[in-house]
């Protein structure tokens, strides 16, 4: 295949993936700037006759009651960031143990970790509510961080383990020879090489926490802990769905994760070369 043909194919492929990814988003954007009564004619014209920023204004000014969207955005940011931070630390430590160390019950423990995530959250939500009620952490961000950690850690350990296992053992072994302990080898050799993997599981922890709804619904009660998905659900009234508000809040809610991933991108690009080890 000549280079230009390859280029065209690449372009077509990327374009197709982007259309699939972005078409629903653009649709959401159109809904968010359309006046309510135009929604029914959008299918025919694709764009509203007149557009409005009312929905955005309204979402950002919702503050007179429990449903303060801005507040929930902040809560979500805090919960997701803290959860991601601890997920990365605890998760990569645990994953290293599975990837490199020999210990009893290893395989069984790995499967048990996974089983904890297989039970439908419907069965888990109520007793978890009882726990946090008991220790007085209901309606706090800490409770959300802890709960989300318990959801992300098992998965993260599995994912990170796969990344660690793809790193040649010789790297570490030579580090031991050089007098680095296990911890030193993990910190100075393995983790830097695994930057792309760390980025990926960081995004995983962040976005899953960002979107977590079922547990957040059960554990929160007021604006001091309600996260964004919980507040967005409040646009669903008994016989009214505010499509405009939902779409605009969904789009505003995209900004933090998208900006963060843009910023941390570079770790995805050059893990191998960014580390202390160069070929």
């Amino acid at each position: 295949m000549s280079k230009s043909v390859k280029k065209v194919l690449l372009f077509i492929g990327v374009a197709l993936v982007m259309i699939f990814t972005l078409a629903p988003l653009i649709w959401a954007f159109i809904i968010s700037i359309s006046p309510g009564k135009e929604l029914a004619s959008l299918a025919r014209h694709w764009l509203p006759d007149s557009f409005t920023l009312m929905n955005y204004k309204q979402v950002l000014s919702l503050s007179d009651n429990a449903a303060s969207f801005k507040n929930s955005l902040l809560n979500s940011l805090i919960v997701a960031t803290v959860t991601t931070f601890f997920s990365l630390i605890f998760g990569s430590l645990g994953a290293y143990a599975f990837a490199r160390l020999r210990f009893r019950m290893k395989d069984r423990l790995a499967v048990i970790f996974l089983i904890t995530q297989m039970v439908p959250s419907i069965a888990i939500a109520l007793p978890m509510y009882l726990i946090f009620n008991r220790i007085g952490l209901l309606d706090t961000k800490s409770a959300l961080v802890l709960a989300n950690l318990s959801f992300t850690l098992p998965f993260i350990i599995w994912m990170m383990r796969a990344f660690f296992e793809s790193i040649p053992k010789e790297l570490e072994e030579s580090a031991f020879v050089d007098g680095l302990g296990r911890f030193g080898a993990l910190l100075r050799i393995i983790l830097p090489i695994s930057a792309p993997g760390l980025f990926a599981i960081g995004v995983f922890a962040y976005l899953n926490t960002w979107n977590e709804f079922n547990t957040a619904l059960v554990l929160t009660g007021s604006s001091q802990s309600k996260t964004m998905p919980v507040v967005i659900n409040e646009f669903l009234g008994r016989f009214s769905v505010d499509y405009g508000l939902m779409a605009s809040s969904g789009i505003i809610g995209l900004l933090p994760p998208v900006l963060l991933t843009l910023f941390f991108q570079r770790y995805l690009v050059d893990g191998m070369t960014a580390g202390a080890v160069k070929g």
Partner: peptide, 12 residues
């Protein structure tokens, strides 16, 4: 941009 669908809350 590829990550956008994932970042969208389920209800939206």
């Amino acid at each position: 941009l590829l990550l956008i669908p994932w970042a969208m809350p389920g209800v939206v």
